[in-house]
Design a protein around this nucleic acid. Structure first.
Lengths: 157, 157
DNA sequence: TCACACCCTGTAGTCACTACAGGGTCAAGC
DNA sequence: GCTTGACCCTGTAGTGACTACAGGGTGTGA
């Protein structure tokens, strides 16, 4: 099947499929006479696996590890458990952080109700007030944006 | 104060401060005779504001908007409310998504308890089984990784 | 003087995509 | 046969919010 067909079958974007191939997550398929990629059933299954993992927010590096286990019948299940446990911990940490965030946003939102000027806006006052209490640890569970924390973080070894 | 001092005072990384200056979020400060940046109190306050917003996961573009309101005393509070409401909605959507994710991971984790081989791993079977039920909409609330959804997404206009 | 912490600019990399440029292929319709 | 639009290709760059590094300058205490 051609890449567009695979994309439709798995609901993974064509460009994402090519990206996965480029980074080695998905093996390069055979090519038709016209240079088009020609995917087999194994590719469909593998991409489905990948997609399922992505839906669980599992990082690509971990997915690669899981795929290794799929290929290695002698591997121990323990590591797989650990991967899922790690992911579960990540999700839970993020959940806790977001719950704290929500609370803070709700409280912040309460600072402003009736229409008035920006100068009188409780939200801005609250956000600005924080600047003076910075070292008092006012930002507790939301001390750092944990969501974007990995954006620029380099795992260089 | 020098950049390192500002970084320490606000707990924002030196490189992040320079990044904020580069993108215009933080005005360029005066320079000492040796070319070093020399920050005033206003910078400290502004950066504190920014940091507080970041801690609330507010995107930089929205923070820039909020900062405009701080500078514009005649602006209406309504837009500030909307920004916070939008962010609150984002956080809540993400919370819902993560909660669904957690449930799925918990159930997935249950597929595996006792030590055994990867071939017998219920987790792998479950992740692989999804590949055959792809079009049945098994991936519900976690249909797409919503967290990374903005990673490659381009808001090109 | 030396060593080390800090500072500078500019560039590139992280993560997981996503978009685009420029060009080729295929098939249906005219 | 020609046109058109969908699909395909490779290679490159951009997204958002950082983060790291190269190469070089400054300041200060020992």
């Amino acid at each position: 099947m051609k890449i567009g067909e695979l994309a439709k079958a798995t609901r993974v974007d064509v460009e994402t499929i090519r990206y996965y191939e480029r980074i080695g997550l998905l093996p390069a398929p055979a090519r038709a006479h016209n240079g088009y990629r020609s995917y087999a059933q194994a590719h469909l299954e593998r991409l489905g696996f990948i997609r399922h993992c992505r839906a669980l927010d599992i990082p690509l590096a971990d997915i690669a590890r899981l795929l290794e286990f799929v290929q290695d019948p002698s591997a121990e299940c323990r590591e797989i458990d650990q991967l899922i446990d790690t992911q579960l911990a990540r999700v839970r940490a993020r959940l806790a952080s977001l719950q704290a965030l929500e609370q803070q946003l709700v409280m912040l939102r309460r600072q402003c109700g009736a229409p008035h000027r920006a100068t009188d806006c409780g939200i801005l006052h609250e956000l600005s007030a924080a600047a003076h209490e910075e070292l008092d640890g006012e930002l507790t569970a939301a001390e750092r944006p944990t969501d974007g924390g990995d954006r620029g973080r380099k795992a260089r070894t």
